[in-house]
Each structure stands twice: as structure tokens, then as C-alpha cells.
Simulated scan of single mutants.
Amino acid sequence: MRGDDRQAYDRGSNIFSPDGRLYQVEYAREAVKRGSASVGVRVEEGVVLAATRRVRSPLLEPRSVEKLHAIDEHHGVASAGHVADARQLVDVARRSAQIERLRYGQPIATEELTTEVSRHIQEYTQSGGARPFGAALLVGGFVEGEARLFETDPSGTPYEWRATAIGGGSDGIRERLKERYDPEMGLDDAVALARDVLSEEDDVEEEFIAVAVIDDDGYRAVDGAAGADSDAE
């Protein structure tokens, strides 16, 4: 009696199936889709990152659910998927930014930062005894007057976007972004767009949506109710 032949490939993150698939990477992508959604919108003035905080209990403080992370004053990250995996990748990004600053005395370029994180992710798709990261990131940056927005996925492949979404319901959110995104819009309009497409997906209340902006003034959180800068960490 033979078991399911696919199980052998399921258990190995560095073993290709006969049809050229890495099942562990595909499962990691499914883990991202089961996470709450995050959105990134790039405009000329900067980048907006927004994320839904999934609160599983009324006793849980929504602000304790971290989906947005400052990397340095020029970069921020929004995550979807396993929170612990995302935190490890955020640490990789922060170290890369610090090394660039200490070595060259200048901020790391957003594309280079994304490449460093993607390289780290990709190593876990070909190493024995390790599993791929079950998290995806949106990396936004504003360096030398230029706004950039990238996505990393569990395969270690980076993509650059004008506007996109990751996590649960991302396909529907991207469709709404495609209909409403305007590259000429201002930063305030981009913040409103990010909030709208997230709230429409799962009818999320405003307090459960975290928003951050990266522009010429650096990375900062945005208050949900008033739309003003927040003093919260």
C-alpha cells in the first residue's frame, strides 16, 4: 500500500515536486492569505501603509496588534500572515538599514532594502531543516524625494507597485484600488483611499485600521479618527 506520493514533497521545503512546485512555499502563501489585510498606496508626495487589526476578543487592546512597523525615519513596513514571522523580517530590515547608515552615512535605498529582505526570505526556501516565512511585507520608503512601494512574498520575490494589498481579501481590495487609484492624488486622498478599501472588505470599524505615512517629514503614524498625526508609538 502506498500513501499519497505528494506527502514527501509536502514535508520538504527544498524538494521540487515532479511538476516543479514547492508545496511549502505555496502553503506559506496560504498562511498570508489567512492573515488580516494590509494596503500600500504610493503617490508623488509619499507612501501610505494601512492595515486591519484583527481583534479576536473584546478584552484585547487593538493598539497592541502591530501590523505597521517603522524601519528607520525613511521606511516603514506593513505585514500580513504570521505575526512572529513578520517580526523576524522586520528585524532583518532594521539591521540592513542600520548597517547602511553606519557604513555609508546615508539612508538605504528602498529597492536595496527590499532586496536584502527578499534575499533572506529566499534562503529559507532552499535550506534543509527550515520552513519558509509565513508572512508577506509591503515595504514603503521615501528617499531623496522619491516614493517607492514594494511587496515581498514567501518565495523571496520582490515586486514594485503603485498600489496593492496583501493578506485576506487582497484580490478584492486590489480590484477596488485599480478602479479608484489616481497617480495624481495627494497624500490625504491616498490615506482616505487606503482606509476605504480596507473598511469595505470586511466592514471594519475605523478604530481597527492602523495607518502610517512616509513622506518628506519621515515615517509617522496617523490618527484614525481625526486624520492627524498620532503621538502613539
Results as ranks from 00 to 15, higher is better:
5 D>C: 08
134 G>E: 02
37 A>D: 06
158 P>W: 04
115 T>G: 14
203 D>G: 09
98 Q>G: 09
187 L>N: 02
113 L>F: 06
62 P>E: 08
189 D>Q: 15
25 V>C: 09
221 A>M: 12
13 S>D: 03
139 V>S: 09
34 R>F: 06
74 H>L: 01
159 Y>M: 14
37 A>T: 13
222 V>M: 15
78 A>C: 07
187 L>P: 09
157 T>H: 14
72 D>M: 05
104 Y>L: 15
188 D>H: 11
203 D>N: 13
165 A>L: 07
172 G>T: 00
21 R>N: 08
116 E>M: 13
89 L>K: 03
222 V>F: 00
164 T>Q: 12
164 T>I: 04
97 A>K: 01
189 D>S: 15
111 E>T: 11
109 A>G: 13
116 E>C: 10
94 R>D: 05
211 V>R: 06
68 L>H: 05
107 P>G: 01
87 R>A: 12
65 V>S: 07
144 E>S: 12
128 G>Q: 13
134 G>W: 02
190 A>T: 04
9 Y>T: 07
26 E>V: 04
62 P>K: 01
126 Q>A: 11
79 S>I: 14
211 V>H: 10
186 G>P: 08
96 S>E: 15
120 H>N: 11
89 L>T: 03
48 V>R: 01
164 T>W: 03
51 A>C: 06
209 I>C: 05
230 S>K: 02
66 E>V: 10
151 E>L: 15
205 E>M: 10
167 G>A: 03
229 D>N: 00
14 N>I: 00
217 D>E: 15
138 L>C: 05
76 G>T: 01
154 P>E: 00
218 G>W: 07
192 A>Y: 01
58 P>K: 13
129 G>S: 04
78 A>F: 04
67 K>E: 11
208 F>R: 11
93 A>D: 02
216 D>Y: 07
151 E>P: 05
157 T>E: 14
143 V>R: 10
65 V>C: 06
110 T>D: 00
